[in-house]
Design a protein around this nucleic acid. Structure first.
Length: 330
RNA sequence: GGCCUGGUUGCUAAGUGGUAAAGCGAGGGUCUGCAAAACCCUUAUACGGCGGUUCGAUUCCGCCCCAGGCCU
């Protein structure tokens, strides 16, 4: 069994490309094995992004916290969509949730498609204690990529050695760290080889490309039927009148008034539907582009997951349960 | 029937008398505070057909085919 450390706590991870059916599987595991779910999704953390982010519905009978089919869900609706949320924040909140679940004697089930978030949590990434500094970034943003790289070489040669010298975003962050701490961080990486303090079982949902494409199309259609376009419209310009029955649903906390730019940044459904709403593309184009973009997104997700040799790729629910049962027995 | 414009890799699209950009798409990859992001690599003999001119034509000439436009 993977990572068996006698003193550590057991956690289950359910991951896979978007539209593969993670949420449903996670809930089933949670019900069967007395678990609670921690979402690991970079968009579901925002309130207001519901249909488009594929958030599970909230049980109406259980107000206050987030339940779905009587299973508590964590890390949903924890941030305003107006502001950028980052891995560091995710890590902090998710860690807290994780501890609490363990304290309750329940099994934490991390479920999501954001690979970085999952690993930051279970491997306890040591992120430099340097929050983003907008002013500094703005300044660095003015420089040429090459200049950024040269500056980093001077200040933190070890980091410069293994950084992607074309990636401005990374370069700026690296400089932000060194300029703030004055201490080179040198080499990071190789997180996957690190020991986790948890004993975890990583389950990946495997789907053939054909199947996945089909699921993407179906889900997109379904979401549009559920009011996805309305959701995006309201995020940009919410209704002021009392919300209608169906609308009061979940995670609604006042008006969002997200700019088109922000919606664009949120990606996929939010990006392309907002472009449609702005009249930049037709509805038909929007749907075609989305199918393509969502597919490409799954490929990026898979690139991340593929190199993780600890993932157990499964194709049926039955096998999953068997796996989980055995994992929890040890 | 006549005239004009155009036919370049999966798509869009440059270009030159000495065998050919780029973008998109597609595939692969990187990843430690924007990750639905950002970045990198790959995409072998692609110039409608047949002749001609030329040392050499995708590039010039002729004919043909195809697409679009115009004219009678």
């Amino acid at each position: 069994m993977p990572n068996h450390l006698s003193t550590s706590h057991k956690i289950i991870v359910v991951l896979g490309p978007t539209a593969s059916g993670k949420s449903e599987l996670a809930v089933k595991i949670a019900r069967k094995f007395n678990g609670e779910i921690i979402s690991a999704d970079s968009r579901q953390v925002y309130y207001g992004l519901n249909i488009g982010s594929g958030k599970v519905l909230r049980d109406k009978k259980i107000p206050k916290s987030y339940f779905y089919k009587e299973i508590p869900h964590h890390l949903l609706d924890v941030a305003s969509p107006k502001r950028t949320f980052t891995v560091a924040q995710y890590q902090k909140l998710a860690k807290k949730a994780l501890k609490e679940i363990i304290k309750r004697g329940k099994i934490p089930i991390i479920c999501g498609g954001t690979g970085l978030y999952i690993d930051a949590l279970i491997y306890d990434y040591q992120l430099p204690n340097v929050p983003p500094q907008p002013k500094l970034r703005k300044q660095l943003e003015k420089k040429l990529t090459e200049e950024l790289f040269q500056q980093l070489q001077k200040l933190d040669p070890r980091r410069a050695k293994n950084i992607d010298k074309n990636n401005r975003r990374r370069l700026i962050r690296a400089l932000e760290i060194i300029l703030t701490t004055k201490k080179p961080i040198g080499i990071l990486r190789q997180a996957q080889d690190k020991k986790s303090k948890y004993d975890f079982l990583k389950i990946g949902i495997k789907k053939s490309p054909e199947k996945l494409k089909k699921l993407i199309t179906q889900r997109l259609k379904k979401r549009i039927k559920q009011g996805l376009i309305e959701e995006v419209k309201n995020l940009h310009q919410p209704f002021y009148s009392a919300p209608a029955e169906g609308e009061a649903r979940q995670g609604r906390r006042g008006k969002q008034n997200l700019s088109w730019k922000r919606l664009d940044d949120l990606g996929l459904e939010y990006r392309y539907i907002s472009r449609y709403l702005r009249g930049l593309i037709s509805k038909k184009e929007m749907i075609e582009i989305l199918k393509k973009e969502i597919w490409r997104y799954t490929k990026r997700q898979m690139t991340w997951f593929k190199k993780d040799k600890k993932i157990h790729w499964i194709e049926s629910k039955k096998i999953t349960f068997k796996f989980v049962k055995q994992f929890l027995k040890n």
